[in-house]
Deep mutational scan, measured.
Amino acid sequence: YFQGQLNAMAHQIQEMFPQVPYHLVLQDLQLTRSVEITTDNILEGRI
């Protein structure tokens, strides 16, 4: 994955969860590489 793709995914998640800091979303995406998994992590309070 290149950074631009991760940034696009992070923006997509931020639209759904504007209360979660962008850098935390991006940090999780770098591990998961998945909008779905990061979204689940937010919903389950891991982020």
Rank of each mutant, 00 (worst) to 15 (best):
Y1Q: 14
Y1W: 10
F2S: 13
F2C: 14
Q3R: 07
Q3G: 07
Q3H: 05
G4L: 11
Q5K: 08
Q5P: 07
Q5A: 09
L6N: 02
L6T: 04
L6Y: 06
L6S: 03
L6K: 02
L6H: 04
L6E: 04
N7E: 15
A8L: 11
M9V: 07
M9C: 09
A10D: 00
A10F: 05
A10M: 07
H11K: 13
Q12C: 15
Q14W: 14
E15P: 02
F17M: 03
F17W: 05
F17D: 02
V20L: 10
V20W: 08
V20T: 05
V20N: 02
V20E: 03
P21L: 06
P21T: 05
Y22K: 13
Y22M: 14
Y22W: 09
Y22I: 15
H23N: 09
L24A: 10
L24N: 06
L24P: 06
L24T: 09
V25G: 01
V25A: 05
V25C: 08
V25K: 00
V25D: 02
V25I: 15
L26S: 02
L26P: 00
L26N: 01
L26Q: 04
Q27C: 13
Q27H: 10
D28H: 02
D28P: 09
L29C: 04
L29T: 01
L29W: 02
Q30K: 10
L31W: 09
L31P: 00
T32F: 02
R33S: 07
S34G: 01
S34E: 03
V35Y: 07
V35K: 08
E36M: 09
I37F: 06
I37D: 08
I37N: 06
T38E: 00
T38G: 00
T39Q: 06
T39K: 12
T39P: 00
D40E: 13
N41A: 03
N41K: 06
N41I: 02
I42P: 00
I42K: 01
I42C: 05
I42N: 00
L43S: 06
L43C: 07
E44F: 10
G45D: 05
G45C: 08
R46Y: 06
R46I: 06
I47M: 07
